Amino acid sequence: MTIPTNSNLQIEMARQVVSLATAENWPVGSRVSDFALAKQLGVSRSPIRAALALLTERGLLEHEPGRGYLLARLPNEADEQDNLAPSEMEVLYRRIMSDRAAGSIADEVSEAELTERYGFSRGAVRKVLMRFATEGLARRLQGHGWGFAESLTSEEVVAESYQFRLIVECGALRQPSFRVDSQELANLRAAQETILAAAEGNVRRDHWFRVNAQFHETLASWSHNRFLVQVVRQQNNLRRMTEYADFDKLSGARIHNACKEHIAILDALGDGDVEFAEALLRRHIERASRELDDSL
C-alpha cells in the first residue's frame, strides 16, 4: 500500500533503512536504533524516527514501549520496490551520480548550476549534495560551490585503484589483530545467498552495491584498524560512482560469480584458514580487474 502523504525525506530514509536491513541481513527481533541509523546515514534523528514509524505501519517493524523499534520480519521485494517508490531526492541523486560517472558534470559546480540543469529546487540539490559529502564523494567549497571527489574515470586510475585494494584489503587479513565476528560472517553469507537466489539479471543496482560494499568493509573491519576501514570505504564510494553508470553492462552471471567467490572467502575464514582466504580475496580482486579491462 502506497501512502502518498509521506514526505520525500521520510520515504528516502525508509528506503535506505530497508536497504540496510536487507544488505546486512538483520535478524528478526533485533533492535533498530534511531540514533545508530541517524549516525550511519548522516541525518538527524527526526527523519529517521518518521521513517521507522512508516515502516512500522507497513509491518516491517514493531514498536514496543521501553524497547523501541524491533525488526518484525525480513524485507521482501515489495518493501524495496513497490511500496517505497523513489523519492524526488533519490531520483535527483541517481541522475547526478550517473552524470558525474559519465563525466558530464565538472569537478566543481554550483548549486545554481545543478538547480538549472535538473529542474529541482536549490534546497533539494543541497540535500543531495550533502548526501554525496557524507559518502565522501563531494565537499563544500566557499560560497555555494561544491567539489566532487576524483572519480575512477580513466583506465590508469582504475588500475591504480585495484592495485591499492590488493595492498589494503589483503593486508587487512594479515593484521595480528584480525578476528572474525561469527555473527557478522553469518549475516554476510546470508546476504550473498539472497543475491544468488535471485534470477540472473534480476539484481537491483542499489542492493548489489550495498551488499558488495558491506562485504569488503566488514572484512577490513575485522582487522580492528580504523584507518584500513576508512580507506576501504573510500574506495567503495569511488567505485560506486564509477560503476553506477556501468551497472547495466554488468551481467547477472558476473554478479553471481562474485557472490560465489565472496562465499568461498567467508567459508575459508569460518574454517580459520586466513591464509587461504587471503589468496581467494587476491584472486577475486585480480579477476574483477581483468574483467573490467576486458569491458573497456
Rank of each mutant, 00 (worst) to 15 (best):
M1D: 10
T2H: 15
T2K: 15
I3Y: 14
I3G: 10
I11H: 08
A14M: 09
V18Y: 08
L20M: 15
N25Y: 12
W26F: 15
S30K: 09
R31D: 10
V32G: 05
S33N: 06
L41T: 02
G42V: 00
G42C: 01
G42E: 00
R45W: 00
R45N: 07
P47K: 03
I48M: 05
L54A: 05
L54W: 01
L54P: 02
T56L: 04
T56M: 05
R58S: 07
E62A: 12
P65S: 11
R67W: 02
R67P: 01
R67E: 07
Y69T: 04
L70T: 01
L71K: 04
L74V: 15
D82S: 13
P86W: 04
S87L: 02
E88K: 15
V91D: 10
V91N: 14
L92N: 07
L92H: 02
Y93F: 15
R95S: 11
R95A: 09
S98T: 14
D99L: 04
R100H: 14
A102K: 06
G103V: 07
G103W: 04
I105E: 08
V109R: 01
V109A: 00
S110T: 14
E111P: 00
A112T: 12
R117K: 03
R117E: 02
G119M: 03
R122L: 06
R131E: 13
F132R: 02
R139I: 14
L141S: 14
Q142Y: 04
G143V: 06
G147T: 11
T153I: 00
S154E: 11
E155S: 13
E156H: 13
V157N: 02
S161M: 10
Y162G: 09
Q163I: 10
F164Q: 11
F164I: 07
I167P: 01
I167M: 13
R174M: 14
S177K: 11
F178S: 05
R179L: 07
V180P: 02
D181Q: 01
S182W: 03
N187T: 07
L188S: 01
A190I: 01
L196V: 06
L196F: 05
A199V: 06
E200T: 08
E200Q: 11
N202F: 02
N202S: 07
N202K: 08
N202T: 01
R204F: 11
R205A: 02
D206Q: 09
H207A: 15
N212H: 09
A213L: 04
Q214F: 06
S221G: 03
S221Q: 10
S223A: 05
S223C: 06
F227P: 00
V231T: 12
N236Y: 03
N237W: 08
L238H: 09
L238W: 11
Y244K: 03
Y244S: 11
Y244W: 15
Y244D: 15
A245Q: 12
D248V: 12
S251W: 02
G252V: 01
A253M: 11
R254N: 12
R254K: 12
H256K: 05
N257R: 12
E261Q: 14
I265A: 05
L266N: 09
L269N: 05
D271S: 14
A277C: 13
L281Q: 06
E286D: 13
E286Y: 05
R287V: 13
A288K: 10
E291N: 12
L292H: 13
S295Y: 10
L296N: 07
